[in-house]
Design a protein around this nucleic acid. Structure first.
Lengths: 240, 240
DNA sequence: CAGTGGTCTAGACCACGGG
DNA sequence: CCGTGGTCTAGACCACTGA
């Protein structure tokens, strides 16, 4: 683990704070104690605490505002879309898709799902299938698996236009904050079932994305397969 | 600019050091002065200097090694591949492609090239076309444009297997270090010319990537179009 | 105005690497 | 051993916010 006694103080403080936030000691939107109070409580100097807070801020787990205080970052549709939804219009403009769930079931994880989510054989997952629309056109099909253990009693209305991002829902209703996603992209010919959903001919080129999302403690919490029709969309990323 | 007199000291120090590195005061692989010497030279405390160095280190412009010193990061094939070449095998294993240049010309920039590289109409670019092979199979076709002004006298042998990454070549021979790339991905049917190069049927699904690469001072220095055959490859990225 | 986070400093001490 | 960067502290002062 990273919580070795040998690790620097600031790193241990960072882990301590991360764990406390993950445990819900301070919930999204709430303020942490002041730097003076926190450093006294942790028995470290303010400078060392600030270094730990700086890391958490860089990871967007917290937000610091001069003159106000330090807050646990709250997931918003805005932010979720901006950070983790990389599709944009051909001209680079932002896109705000709507979405509609058309299947929701709870079943034993398939082998690929269990593997992606580090679940034992036979563990239950909630499985969602949905479409996302851009300018009234179906542009994205998705199949999502969530560990039942992390999302007990998960539910969403079928067939209704959803405005909020799923990640906002995860945080508000299940206390799970997505911090990082890993994706593997490929270009494939649309399988028949997907082609139907997206209004394409079978075999037409679509972008396929296999995503695993990780939470604050870097545990895998969602596996998502996406099929994206990229005639009117671009998937924009930045590497540095 | 970011070099306002009002900006914090550490930010001004960071910009100052970045500019000096870009200007070649310390070349890739060379050591910067010690922290004590640098802080004295810049008239700031060691703590403030360390903060500036921390930013440059996070951006991988420099590397600090305890007991040794601070060095300007040198581009290596290893690093260039790892950071900016996101293709991997289906099982997640790394891939080391070979490449072969089959066209090299210098001509006025096309409108899209001029736009991508912030060049005036009619400015000259070097235009490269190459193929990249994975396990002996042509898997990637690329067309690359470089501003002639930044790469005077650019040349590479045609038709030979190249081992070094292009970005290593940019740094070694033209003093240009790529720090960041922006990409737009889509899935398209392979155009006839590309299909021929990749051994695909015309219209077969390929991943298309339009990339712009930026240097140390965040100027656009390369525009690259790639067509990737993703039957044996995945494009792996991480968002956080 | 009081209280918050942001900047900057000076200095002690530690850990590492090489002569 | 010495010189390097890495950690940690204590404290002064600034800049912003809201009552």
């Amino acid at each position: 683990m990273t919580t070795l006694a040998r690790a620097p103080l600031y790193a241990r403080a960072e882990q301590e704070l991360r764990a406390r936030i993950a445990a819900g000691e301070w919930k999204p939107g709430e303020a942490l104690p002041t730097e003076a109070a926190l450093s006294a409580q942790l028995g470290i100097s303010q400078g060392t605490l600030r270094r730990a807070l700086g890391v958490l801020e860089a990871q967007r787990l917290i937000e610091r505002r001069q003159g106000i205080g330090t807050y646990v970052t709250e997931a918003t549709s805005e932010r979720a879309l901006f950070h983790f939804f990389r599709a944009e219009a051909l001209d680079g403009g932002r896109i705000t898709p709507t979405s509609q769930l058309h299947r929701l079931e709870t079943a034993p994880a398939r082998p690929e799902e269990a593997c992606a989510l580090s679940l034992p054989q036979g563990a239950l997952v909630h499985r969602l299938a949905r479409q996302r629309f851009v300018a009234g056109q179906a542009a994205i099909a998705e199949e999502i698996a969530l560990p039942e253990a992390l999302f007990p009693g998960f539910h969403l209305p079928l067939g209704v236009e959803l405005t909020d991002e799923l990640y906002v829902h995860y945080q508000r209703h299940h206390g799970i904050t997505v911090m990082r996603v890993a994706e593997k992209l490929s270009a494939i010919g649309a399988p028949e079932s997907i082609a139907g959903l997206l209004g394409l001919a079978p075999g037409a080129p679509v972008m396929h994305i296999a995503r695993i999302a990780f939470d604050v403690m870097d545990r895998p919490v969602e596996r998502r397969l996406s099929w994206i029709e990229t005639r009117a969309l671009r998937y924009a990323i930045e590497l540095r």
